[in-house]
Design a protein around this nucleic acid. Sequence first.
DNA 1: CTTTTACGAGACACTATGTATTGAAATTAG
DNA 2: CTAATTTCAATACATAGTGTCTCGTAAAAG
Lengths: 199, 199
Amino acid sequence: MIERQQVGRPRSEQARAAILHAVDDLVVESGYGAVTLKGIAERAGVSRQTIYRWWSTKAEILLEASAIDARQELQVPAHETPAEDVVAYLDALLAFLSTSDAGTAYRALVGEAQHDAKVAELLRDTDPVGQSAAEVIERALPGHEMRLPEATAELVGPVFFWVLSGRDPAELDTGRLAAAFLRNGPGVSRATAARRRGR
Amino acid sequence: MIERQQVGRPRSEQARAAILHAVDDLVVESGYGAVTLKGIAERAGVSRQTIYRWWSTKAEILLEASAIDARQELQVPAHETPAEDVVAYLDALLAFLSTSDAGTAYRALVGEAQHDAKVAELLRDTDPVGQSAAEVIERALPGHEMRLPEATAELVGPVFFWVLSGRDPAELDTGRLAAAFLRNGPGVSRATAARRRGR
DNA sequence: CTTTTACGAGACACTATGTATTGAAATTAG
DNA sequence: CTAATTTCAATACATAGTGTCTCGTAAAAG
């Protein structure tokens, strides 16, 4: 924590929260396209100037509004076997991307990133999907012999593509995907890895 | 071909081409975000009304403008082995998504589809990436025992995620991805499949 | 009480949107 | 040739969002 701003009226936490909630609500209600800074300000009961003071784009606000929820929803409890871990994660990822409010926000951000370099950078810095996937891989498959970036893409990619290309989430067989990922993934079994760590 | 419009002034093919080219140029020059219908009209030397008559959104025009190029760039010549085929396809896909003009348009469309249901439907009907991937799988791995939708997602997904999440295309090891895909993919070898067809 | 910073309210110029109107051009049917 | 039909360019219009600015007020520190 850095001590900044010793003097002057402190930032209104109420206004901040109202803005973030307003964005969340508006995106879910009317979709990202219909969200405007004007609308956010009115909904939050806040002056537009107040928004511009702290954020410069819709995307920035949306990222801040959804980041916490995103992390939480992509956090899966540890399971006994790597297979269970991976399936649970893929299910969570599918639910996040296709049904969750935070997921809606995330997809909107990915969309914006395709034609807005600032958003792309913003998203690269704090990408909840990529990070959560990397964590799961490290946890479920310690001692694996994959390159982590590629492994992350292999794990996340299929679900990511499925949802973002508009396919029906209900028709995706995550078990199949998990099996495929595990088949080519770990160069060593979990037991082997445990033995290695024991030595 | 359906015979429509027997009477009246025919649609100007010149205007149509000018509009499509203008969109192409503008997207490449200034990015999708900066493209406006007004700008397209001015660039193409065309009335705005003429655009509205034939298309209803930027996305529609862009799809029409890039669809042909997209198909062409994702078309890879057949190779000797499945491995070569798959690697060649993944390289083409990576180049398409990350460097090609048509790929830029495609990514923009995928982005729009995340907050525009019309675009999503439009893209679902004519998705050059999904279709080309399915073709490659059927060609390179006849007799495979995968469900085609999941297999398509497994093949395309990692590259798709890599690029759309803003990772550096130069750092992606497509050979590794291809190997992983092939390892879990074909239930039968190409030779076996050929034998089967022969019977 | 003074200084500093944040706030709400509202005005401003600018730009894009989507629709409508008008008159000219290009084509077919009779 | 004429009438009907359809497209076209040009232009105007109301609506709405953008980003910046100003003003008077509120809340904190010294």
